[in-house]
Design a protein around this nucleic acid. Sequence first.
DNA 1: TTGACGTATTCCCATATAGGTATATGATCG
DNA 2: CGATCATATACCTATATGGGAATACGTCAA
Lengths: 117, 117
Amino acid sequence: MARAATTADAFNAVAEPRRREILDALAGGERPVNDLVRLLGLAQPQVSKHLRVLREVGAVDVRDEGRQRLYRLNGHALKPIHDWVKTYERSWSERFEQLDDVLEDLKQKEQGDAGDE
Amino acid sequence: MARAATTADAFNAVAEPRRREILDALAGGERPVNDLVRLLGLAQPQVSKHLRVLREVGAVDVRDEGRQRLYRLNGHALKPIHDWVKTYERSWSERFEQLDDVLEDLKQKEQGDAGDE
DNA sequence: TTGACGTATTCCCATATAGGTATATGATCG
DNA sequence: CGATCATATACCTATATGGGAATACGTCAA
């Protein structure tokens, strides 16, 4: 087997920097393809291809408006990524380290108190 | 050009589900390779390869202990992912929607008050 | 209808896998 | 030293890109 398809899930879709840029651009609101082409400085077909991948994982929605196709962010598709990486926040967040200290204290007090139950 | 290397950054490294599983397994603490082999049910060479990728993006550290190599999680490498995806939390979090409401209220009050500066 | 505009799709190519299998490397034991 | 355990690496293969160029498709204007 080769690498998993970029359309397999949000993790793969978002591994490509250009696609993250597209999502960042769409964070400001709905945009037609050519807007993105200008903003990212990519060729139009490339943008369309990236948009397709993002569509397939549900990270963007499309709406037809005359000859244009307006793309809109659908951040919900990114929630699994957030959920996963959030559990590692402890590794770099000072706040969580302090929380760990507090929990450690509580634990020791409990042991100092009565035993089981 | 083909797809970016998995060792290019944490986003690419973590796009592979097995590698996320490895990190999840290491969240419990330092482990030798064979532990991971058993836990994930993968062939040993595959695990070593995934670990190499994770090492190259800094998501794990290694330590030699006799014939074993103990791998340890280094969640700091995942911070960029968290930082990026966090900005989209608004899309699904009820808390953020409520925050938006509050900010909207403040805005309207400001406009009701004196004008510029 | 003809033409222009905005997008999507098709082809082609170079590249980087991820898995399987075999093997090399290192350390420890007898 | 020779054998064994724990890992890493080398090879090979099928596959899925991502970019470039050309082109098809749908809509609107004259």
